[in-house]
Computed example of a mutant assay.
Amino acid sequence: MPESKPRRKNKPQSQENQGSHAVDKPMPAWYKPVMFGLMLLGLVWIMVYYISQTLFPIPNIGGWNIVIGFGIAMVGFFMTTGWK
Rank of each mutant, 00 (worst) to 15 (best):
R7Y: 01
W83H: 14
P57R: 00
P59E: 02
I58W: 01
F36C: 02
T80S: 15
N60F: 10
A73T: 01
W83S: 13
F78G: 11
G42R: 04
W83Q: 10
V75P: 03
W30K: 06
M47C: 12
G71K: 06
V44K: 01
S4D: 15
E3D: 10
E3Y: 11
K84T: 12
K25Q: 10
I46A: 06
S14Y: 15
N65I: 05
V67T: 10
L38G: 04
V67Y: 03
I68A: 09
M27T: 05
P6G: 10
V44I: 12
F78I: 09
H21R: 06
P12S: 11
V44Y: 01
R7K: 13
Y31M: 09
M35I: 03
Y50G: 14
I46D: 02
L43Y: 12
F56R: 13
E16L: 10
G19Y: 03
W30Q: 13
P59A: 08
K9C: 03
G82F: 07
D24K: 05
I72E: 03
K32N: 07
A22N: 10
G71N: 06
Q13T: 13
K84E: 07
A22Q: 09
V23N: 09
N10G: 08
N10A: 12
G71P: 08
V34Q: 06
A22E: 12
E16S: 08
F77H: 13
G76Q: 07
Q53N: 15
M35S: 04
M1N: 14
Y31T: 08
I51M: 12
Q15S: 05
S20F: 09
K32H: 05
T80I: 06
V34I: 14
N17Q: 14
I46M: 00
W83I: 03
Y31D: 10
V44A: 07
G63Q: 10
D24M: 06
T54P: 00
F36H: 10
V23R: 10
Q53I: 13
K5I: 02
M39N: 07
G76N: 07
W45G: 07
F36P: 07
V48Y: 03
P59F: 00
M35N: 05
N60V: 08
V48N: 00
I46C: 01
I68Q: 01
N10Q: 09
A29I: 09
V34H: 06
Y49A: 01
V34E: 05
M27W: 00
Y31I: 04
F56I: 02
N17C: 00
F70W: 07
V75S: 13
N10R: 11
V34A: 13
G63S: 13
S20V: 06
F56C: 04
G37S: 01
F78R: 11
A29Q: 10
M74I: 12
S52W: 05
I46W: 01
A73P: 00
Q53G: 12
P6F: 05
L41D: 00
E3P: 08
T54C: 01
M74D: 04
I72K: 01
Y49G: 03
Q15V: 09
P12T: 05
F70L: 11
V48C: 00
F36R: 04
F77K: 04
T81R: 13
V67L: 06
M35P: 03
K9V: 12
F36S: 03
L43T: 14
A73K: 04
V75D: 08
K84F: 09
P57F: 02
R8A: 13
G42N: 11
I72H: 04
Q18Y: 03
Q18V: 12
Q53E: 15
S4R: 15
L55H: 06
